[in-house]
Design a binder for these strands. Structure first.
Length: 667
DNA sequence: GCCCCATCACCTGT
DNA sequence: CACAGGTGATGGGG
């Protein structure tokens, strides 16, 4: 039956009649598949991707929806799988939900299903309470998100996941372990209603921007970008008046297949099924035109927009995979190939819709810069740190003719005029080799209230008034995992010229939330000198005693209730003042600009040198940061400014961060 | 029609 | 490499 396509690895030119090959009934010609009468929004208001529903007549317009975001356009779709969780629980929240007049129903009735509940006893429990209000998500926002809500959900997810990892790692290999913290965190959040964009849609997803990166498939699920937790194809089922239709809305390209195309705007995607590499004992079979394949096939005819997420190996951590949202594509071609195992395999050619900001293409050009083939445009200096960092810090200006920042000496850490004697002198831990999470004999861990502050791959678990790291007086090896902020830069950085804010800092690598970025290096000065420095025009003062906007980064303790761990103090009070000037001496941190919605935050870290405790300011990623994104943190307000109220105090600068939550000025 | 459960596939992750 | 594992689709029974 596969005579005609046995030897081809080239897409045939004409359209194939798959119905012949696969014994599938032919496609019917499509009529508009949802009712236009009742709720059609005014013309022109469709989100991108809807017009193609008009089979042949509608003009192929440009992807208008691509650049707009957050515009919660009403979608005239009725999805089969309605977001029942939302509908139900929202009415529950009103406290008036037509309570079961139908006597029985609902779970908890311990009637005849007891037999099945023997093997899975946990199922019979009451559903967990809706906790979405805790983190500030309304029922409507669960349906349709926004940038802010997406950030809230992702932060809640990762905070919980980090904490679960921490608990898991502390337990060594003993009792009931929390394997797969990624799954557990997702499950917890979903059952508590902490998620967004539950309404499946074609085209852009509100709150998700092209270039956004993710570190787990579950992150794609909870923000409504791609629903299946493993499957590569997300399909939407639409009920029309006479027919039902299924369309592909999103795909994840894992990069494990031969998806690669030379052109970064093209992707060749393999259909699903056929067991062609999973079951080894089974002979590989032809893929069938069903499920995801069927959806892709229909989409290739409807020409609807399909979101594309590209999975790729993390250069820093080859075990990890990073998912990059690469925007909207359309399926241009499809054909059948013969796989090595012998089965027929569907192939789909997706082409990126032009006019979208680049995402995956940026990754590709970074790869090229790193290999050095076309040199970086605007490169002024290959390594601003002059070897002081283990990793080069390039200096780049693609904007104007300014050749260099004002002179300063690059230094990787702090210079103390005197020892920092606020804390009682203490001795380092006596661990051999490395400190082990959960080992309460380790004095450093005890100082961290029994928690190892970092996960195994060096990610900060939660903010604290003070993180205690191991230091030179500890017995443990220098590669102990509790020395994260002492190990210098881990990502190749770039000091670059911004359009309107002088120099800025960004990374060539993606940075995962909670990753240590750098410390604020410079000279420590006494508190009394601050005003003098400011008067002298020192723009490089870091002062822990300023007023900082509070924000929540740690996990929500109520989400951990069933594990019995509900300690979480996100205490924002700064225990010890520390003032640093990086005017004459400093590192990359002095180039980080202010933003009112930053992607980096600072955390006090302490460790010992020569039996004296020294305080450092360490910067961590607030959320996942795509490569080439400017790194920013909140500069806070000088105390004197705060006392004067909101009147424009002297020395304040107009803020150009461009955030929707911009406070207007800083400094 | 609905609800509940079981089963299955899936471009996971450790 | 093995295997635990979540989600959503599917299908059957009550």
């Amino acid at each position: 039956m596969e005579e005609g396509l046995g030897q081809n690895s080239v897409p045939p030119h004409g359209p194939i009649d798959k119905s012949k090959i696969l014994d599938i009934k032919p496609l019917r010609s499509l009529i508009p598949i949802y009712s236009m009468s009742s709720q059609a929004p005014p013309a022109g208001q469709y989100p991108s991707g809807f017009s193609p529903f008009f089979p042949f007549g509608a003009p192929q317009q440009t992807p208008t929806g691509v650049t707009t975001r957050g515009a919660a356009t009403p979608a005239p779709l009725r999805a089969y799988k309605n977001p029942l969780g939302a509908g139900d629980s929202s009415s529950t929240m009103n406290g008036f939900n037509g309570q079961d007049t139908s006597g029985k129903k609902k779970r908890g009735s311990p009637s005849r299903h007891t037999k099945s509940s023997v093997n899975k006893p946990k199922k019979s429990q009451e559903p967990p309470a809706d906790l979405s209000g805790l983190v500030g998500i309304s029922p409507a926002q669960r349906e349709d998100g926004s940038r802010e809500v997406v950030n809230i959900v992702l932060m809640a997810y990762d905070a919980l996941r980090r904490r679960l990892c921490q608990l898991e790692e502390a337990k060594e290999l003993s009792s009931g372990s929390i394997k797969r913290a990624d799954l557990k965190a997702c499950n917890t959040l979903m059952t508590r209603g902490i998620r967004t964009n539950m309404r499946k849609r074609i085209g852009a997803v509100p709150g998700i921007e092209i270039g956004d990166i993710f570190y787990f498939r579950m992150e794609l699920c909870i923000v409504g970008l791609h629903a299946p937790s493993m499957g590569g194809i997300d399909a939407l089922h639409i009920r029309g008046e006479f027919e039902e239709e299924t369309l592909a809305v999103c795909i994840v390209s894992s990069g494990e297949y031969d998806d690669d195309a030379e052109d970064s705007d093209v992707i060749i995607y393999t259909g699903q099924g056929g067991n062609f590499f999973m079951n080894k004992d089974k002979h590989t079979t032809d893929q069938k035109l069903q499920r995801g394949n069927l959806a892709l096939d229909r989409s290739s005819r409807q020409h609807n927009e399909v979101r594309v997420i590209r999975g790729m190996r993390d250069g820093v951590n080859p075990n990890n995979k990073i998912y990059v949202y690469d925007g909207l594509y359309k399926i241009q071609d499809s054909w059948i190939e013969k796989a090595k195992g012998g089965g027929g395999v569907f192939k789909y050619k997706l082409v990126r819709i032009p006019g979208q900001s680049s995402a995956f293409a940026v990754w590709k050009s970074i790869q090229k810069w790193k290999s050095g083939s076309p040199s970086r445009t605007g490169l002024i200096l290959a390594d601003l740190s002059n070897g002081a960092e283990g990793i080069p810090v390039s200096l780049v200006n693609e904007v104007n003719n300014v050749k260099a920042p004002t002179f300063f000496n690059y230094f990787h850490s702090l210079r103390h005029p005197k020892s920092f004697s606020l804390m009682q002198p203490s001795h380092g831990c006596t661990c051999i080799k490395a400190c082990v999470p959960g080992d309460l004999n380790c004095s450093c861990i005890r100082r961290n209230e029994g928690d190892f502050p970092y996960t195994g791959n060096g990610i900060l678990v939660s903010r604290k008034p003070l993180v205690h790291e191991c230091g030179p007086t500890c017995q443990c090896f220098p590669n102990c995992k509790n020395r994260v902020s002492q190990t210098g830069l881990k990502h190749p950085m770039e000091v670059f010229r911004t359009k309107d804010r002088g120099w800025g800092l960004r990374s060539l690598d993606p940075i995962r939330a909670g990753t240590f970025i750098c410390e604020y290096a410079g000279e420590v000065v006494g508190r009394g000198k601050v005003s003098q420095l400011v008067k002298e025009g020192d723009e490089y003062v870091f002062d822990t005693t300023r007023i900082y906007d509070q924000f929540k980064w740690n996990y929500e303790p109520r989400l951990l209730e069933e594990i019995g761990s509900n300690d979480s103090t996100e205490d924002y009070a700064m225990p010890y003042p520390l003032i640093i000037t990086a005017k004459n001496i400093g590192n990359v941190a002095r180039f980080m600009n202010h933003s009112c919605s930053p992607n980096v935050f600072w955390q006090p870290v302490v460790y010992e040198e020569n039996n004296q405790s020294y305080l450092h300011v360490a910067f961590f990623a607030l959320r996942h940061i795509p490569p080439m994104t400017e790194l920013t943190y909140d500069y806070g307000l000088a105390q004197s400014d705060h006392a004067e109220g909101s009147s424009a105090a002297k020395g304040r600068k107009k803020c150009l961060c461009g955030s929707s939550k911009c406070r207007g000025s800083f400094g």
